[in-house]
Design a protein around this nucleic acid. Structure first.
Length: 271
DNA sequence: CGGGCCACCTGGCGGC
DNA sequence: TGCCGCCAGGTGGCCC
């Protein structure tokens, strides 16, 4: 799925296309994705104007002029397409704008969600209330992580992916960041020193920003709103590179299962 | 409470 | 060709 950079890429692509436009027609093709669509979904949206598009964690937030926010999450396989579609298979909702732009929400695995919240619920809604800090802000720094990891005995890889601590870092970018910071994913979070956390924070910010600049990572099927692939996957150093050689030290890239997810890493570079 | 496990879904791939 | 098991950018619930 889209991690932070992929959702950010969707946001950047969608913003200039939809801000200032209004919804003229909505098609909802199922009653639920991961959760139910809200009651009266289409009638709440129709004739509202889009005033802003933002992102919180891996959620895309479409701000409307009726004090509501259209919330989208993309799960593992969600995407947005624009333009006429030949098939609506797995297209769970479509949105027509007043300039005849068509926006389609597609998610074959249906781990994503679409809902509507009030603007003042953005911190208190159950989807958002337990979310940690954004990694591309100054709040995300070594001292913050030192405090959060102090008594955390789980491995650093899973700790990085813990949404209660910091958001947006998923399976790809956790692995890539740990490689860049030369930290083994197997170490307990509590064992990472302040100096190492400084290196890790910097690595995460650089990796995420570079991925955004590259339009995200297309591993299987991620595409931006115009159907183009991201190209950050070409810069991956460890993710999906099991059995290949490390670009730094030539060691064969290894993998391990942590929390049911595959972690790729270099046993030589990461200690 | 933290952490481990599992469920939610579809589709693509490799092996037999 | 076709079936089967395994795997996939996430999240949350349940259980100890």
């Amino acid at each position: 799925m889209p991690e932070l950079p992929e959702v950010e890429t969707i946001k950047l692509g969608l913003s200039p296309v939809i801000i200032g436009k209004s919804f003229t027609q909505i098609w909802q093709r199922r009653k639920n994705i991961r959760i139910d669509f809200p009651p009266n979904f289409s009638s709440i949206l129709e004739n509202t104007t889009i005033i802003d598009v933002t992102r919180r964690a891996k959620y895309l937030l479409i701000h409307l002029d009726n004090n509501k926010i259209l919330v989208m999450h993309f799960g593992m396989s969600g995407k947005i397409f624009m333009g006429k579609q030949d098939s609506f298979l797995h297209v769970h909702a479509s949105f027509l704008l007043n300039d005849n732009t068509e926006i389609h929400y597609y998610d074959p695995r249906r781990f994503g969600l679409i809902t509507i919240i009030n603007m003042d619920e953005i911190d208190s809604h159950k989807l958002f209330i337990n979310l940690g800090i954004e990694p591309l802000t100054d709040y995300f720094n070594a001292n913050y992580l030192l405090k959060k990891f102090k008594n955390k005995n789980t491995n650093i890889k899973q700790a990085l992916m813990d949404n209660n601590i910091a958001v947006g870092v998923g399976n790809i970018y956790a692995a890539e960041s740990l490689f860049k910071a030369n930290i083994s994913p197997l170490r307990p979070a509590s064992s990472i020193t302040l100096l190492e956390l400084e290196k890790l924070c910097e690595a995460i910010k650089i990796i995420l920003q570079n991925a955004i600049n590259a339009g995200g990572s297309s591993i299987r099927d991620y595409q931006n709103i115009d159907g183009d692939l991201g190209y950050f996957q070409n810069m991956h150093q460890v993710y999906n590179r099991y059995g290949q050689r490390c670009n730094i030290c030539d060691t064969i890239i290894d993998k391990v299962t942590q929390g049911g997810r595959t972690t790729f890493y270099c046993k030589t570079c990461q200690v």
